Amino acid sequence: MKKIVLLVPLFLLTLGTAGCTKKEAAQTPSPQPEVTLHYSAAASLKDALGEIEKNYEKANPSIHLDIDYGGSGAIREKVVAGAPIDGVLLASKADTDKLIEAGKLEAENKLLENTLVIVKNKQDDRKKADLATIVADVKKIAIGNPETVPAGQYAKQSLEKAVLYNAVKEHLVMASDVRQVLAYVEAGNAEVGFVYKTDALTSDKVAVLADVENDLHEDILYYTGVVKDSKNKAAVTKFNTYLGKSESQTVLEKYGFTMAQ
């Protein structure tokens, strides 16, 4: 009889402990599966997105952002060719529209605005002037390749509308993206170059000669998008949404970008 008295509390204790263990297990959230997002962005965003990437991964430890940078046209071509890209941030409405028309992109959203400027090497003694005066006496003008680089497209539009393109086209040095234009001017391989205001702000080796008038080119707008073939659409959408939030806006504006209206 004593054995029975002793065993009943032990049985109840064991049952209670098991119940608590099951309850605790049920309350413990399952770890989030790790996801790597392959993201492609316009070269002009490299510094700003590099900082945002660190902030986002710190707040979302299960997400790893693998971001590559290049000309928006080149990124578009890679998406069309089926490269493993989950999301994009392009500096071109035209390239964004082409991806939508090709059935490759969804959930696009206008995010940012930028300004086109002409820069010189800081060691160059030329003074600030208007577009016509600047390009009249230079032998090498760096622009992004208009076929694949939006900044180059905007530069060409500006020169054409100002009726200057034919006069300077033999002096144009083509670059693969806007950051290469900046590098050409920094190294002295071109006397002046057309870059975004945000690129000029990243360099202590160049100075802005002039802002290019907005009415000489299409609006400079940046669009986010989710690639239709992505297996991580929800994660891409979440990151794209984060890019529009106040913490990202603070970083983007620090680098000279303006949030789109």
Results as ranks from 00 to 15, higher is better:
198 T>P: 06
131 L>S: 07
52 I>H: 04
72 S>Q: 08
234 A>T: 12
68 D>W: 09
21 T>D: 12
83 A>F: 09
33 P>N: 06
92 S>I: 00
128 K>H: 11
44 S>R: 07
155 A>C: 03
169 K>V: 02
149 V>P: 06
113 E>Q: 14
161 K>Q: 00
251 V>H: 09
241 T>A: 12
212 V>H: 04
166 N>W: 05
95 D>E: 14
42 A>H: 06
180 Q>L: 08
221 L>G: 05
21 T>M: 15
157 Q>A: 05
181 V>R: 06
38 H>M: 02
246 S>R: 12
180 Q>W: 08
117 V>I: 06
120 K>G: 01
85 I>F: 10
108 E>K: 13
204 D>N: 15
204 D>S: 15
40 S>I: 03
184 Y>E: 03
189 N>A: 13
86 D>N: 02
242 Y>G: 00
231 K>T: 13
102 A>R: 04
122 K>N: 14
235 A>I: 02
100 I>T: 08
201 L>D: 10
121 N>M: 05
227 V>S: 05
153 Q>D: 12
29 P>R: 01
157 Q>M: 01
70 G>T: 10
204 D>I: 08
117 V>S: 03
45 L>K: 10
241 T>V: 07
23 K>G: 12
58 K>M: 05
134 I>W: 08
135 V>N: 04
34 E>N: 08
39 Y>R: 02
238 K>N: 13
149 V>L: 13
59 A>E: 10
220 I>G: 01
11 F>M: 15
101 E>Q: 15
203 S>Q: 09
132 A>D: 13
50 G>C: 00
240 N>E: 00
118 I>S: 05
